[in-house]
């Protein structure tokens, strides 16, 4: 029984974007997120399915989460519950995830601080751990715009981690992390 209010920063306004070292962290407002599970949900080609390191098209699109689950982004309003004809379980999860974009030339370097990520290693699922926190990670529009969905209650921690990682780019130099050309110094 202890008052720890001062040990924890009050939640920062996540509605404001943040740009540093050429990387932008932008909150994204989506109209709707719908959790859809079913034995054939990935083959029922109602929407384009997005995996890693896929680039999502204009919504609606469906994020592949598991062999039998997608998260439909900005899809139609659907009734919650079991849909007998399509054999699908449907739940509105619009507020379950907070959504952010990390974009810029060095956006991938930021994400590499939170997970062992490879653009050349495809994955059928966009679900993974980033900075130890469960997220859905994929790209939208372009090669260097990454979108992250994170459980709303963990958004604060993820944003903090991302901001620190973006700051760390400064000392990491541009691209090549060699601190200085040690040889040229003496030649």
């Amino acid at each position: 029984m202890r008052n720890d209010s001062n040990k924890w920063d009050a939640p920062a306004a996540l509605t404001v974007g943040h740009t540093e070292n050429g990387v932008a962290l932008t909150p994204i407002e989506l109209t709707r997120q719908t959790l859809i599970s079913g034995p054939r949900v990935l083959s029922q080609a109602d929407w384009s399915i997005v995996g890693w390191p896929g680039i999502a098209p204009t919504p609606p699109y469906a994020l592949s989460l598991r062999r039998d689950r997608v998260l439909l982004v900005d899809g139609p309003d659907m009734a919650d519950g079991w849909q007998e004809d399509t054999q699908r379980a449907i739940s509105d999860a619009s507020d379950a995830y907070s959504v952010f974009d990390v974009s810029g030339d060095r956006a991938f370097e930021v994400l590499q601080r939170g997970a062992e990520l490879r653009l050349d290693a495809e994955s059928k699922s966009v679900a993974r751990l980033l900075f130890g926190i469960g997220v859905l990670l994929y790209r939208v529009n372009t090669e260097d715009q990454f979108r992250i969905h994170v459980a709303s209650s963990h958004a604060e921690a993820l944003v903090k981690s991302l901001k620190l990682a973006i700051s760390a780019l400064r000392s990491a130099g541009q691209g090549n992390s060699r601190p200085e050309d040690a040889l040229s110094k003496t030649s």
Partner: peptide, 29 residues
Amino acid sequence: GHHEKQLWHPLKRLALEQEHREIGAALGE
């Protein structure tokens, strides 16, 4: 690394944390 202080074991945060703080809530884990 950065896994220290508030990011050592990040707590989950309530939607209403700001409202609770405004009326003087003593927050704890």
